[in-house]
Amino acid sequence: MTEKTVIPFQGTPEQEAQLKEVIAKHHDQPGGLMPTLQEAQGIYGYLPIEVQKMIADGLGVSLSEVFGVATFYSQFSLTPKGKHRISVCLGTACYVKGSDKILEAVEAKLGIKSGECTADGMFSIDSCRCVGACGLAPVMLVDEDVYGKLKPDQVAKILDSYK
């Protein structure tokens, strides 16, 4: 399955300078590739080939190794995320309380599926496995905001509040 970034890379010189700093910081750290990728995604929002090449060259590892690590972990994204990142928890406690219906409601409202981004770049949907707020099941995150004890018909109003 090919991961192709449709949106062209729009990295700025400031971001590149930040990335170079991150690479230098982790260059001699044992196992530094993981924190480098995590911080790089913090800078750019995702990990396109341009960023992965800089990391590969900077840390002295092959691009295929960097790509192998980037595609193993769910948190790393090869495609850009939306301005607002929605994450619906599908962990056991939330699932048993119907979080799959919450996810369906979000997908229906935005017209995209989990893992995708809306065409206007405003929203992207992901699912995650347990954020540790099982007392609030079912849980949905929008950026840093946590919404708990959700019902599917509450979804539309919550999403509209971000427009």
Partner: peptide, 26 residues
């Protein structure tokens, strides 16, 4: 490719059943 030849142009991509061997970005 990686250890004997130090060329390392192929590697494992993704995980679980979708794991496959290929070059970066397929």
């Amino acid at each position: 490719c990686k250890n004997v030849q130090s060329v390392s142009v192929i590697g494992n991509i993704r995980r679980g059943f979708n794991v496959h061997v290929g070059s970066a970005f397929d």
